[in-house]
């Protein structure tokens, strides 16, 4: 018999790993550059999840101080991730600009076609 309670308590970690692994697969196995970048942003998002899940305290609330509330979740991972999100979108913009230039140079954004063109040249 599977212990569903334990699974539920580990569920965040399991899903985080699954998302990471799937998006890693998208990044390394799919040939299309735009899809690779989508995978990269999904990977970033799963890293956010990795950081934010342990910060939660069941029964606590968001770290905005109010009277009559004692338990708050941990605010420090939130700060880190807030920075990471902004840096992530900067990376994404740069990557997409590179994709546009690759399209200009090779006429395609498929990885294998680019390799073929490089091999011929």
């Amino acid at each position: 018999m599977i212990d569903f309670g334990e699974i539920l308590l580990k569920y965040n970690a399991i899903v985080t790993v699954f998302l990471m692994v799937t998006s890693l697969y998208i990044v390394i196995a799919k040939g299309n550059m735009i899809k690779k970048l989508v995978g990269l942003s999904l990977f970033q998002t799963s890293v956010y999840l990795l950081y934010l899940s342990p910060a939660k305290i069941v029964g606590g609330t968001a770290p905005i101080i109010a009277d009559a509330i004692m338990v708050y979740s941990n605010p420090l991972p939130h700060v880190l991730i807030l920075t990471a999100i902004v840096v992530g979108v900067a990376t994404l913009a740069l990557g997409l600009a590179l994709v546009v230039r690759i399209q200009d140079a090779y006429g395609t954004i498929e990885e294998d076609e680019i390799f073929r063109a490089e091999g011929d040249a």
Partner: peptide, 15 residues
């Protein structure tokens, strides 16, 4: 749901 209110707002705007 994980209580990261500010992060949720940023993620919605950015993502």
């Amino acid at each position: 749901v994980l209580d990261a209110v500010d992060v949720a707002m940023t993620e919605a705007a950015v993502g």
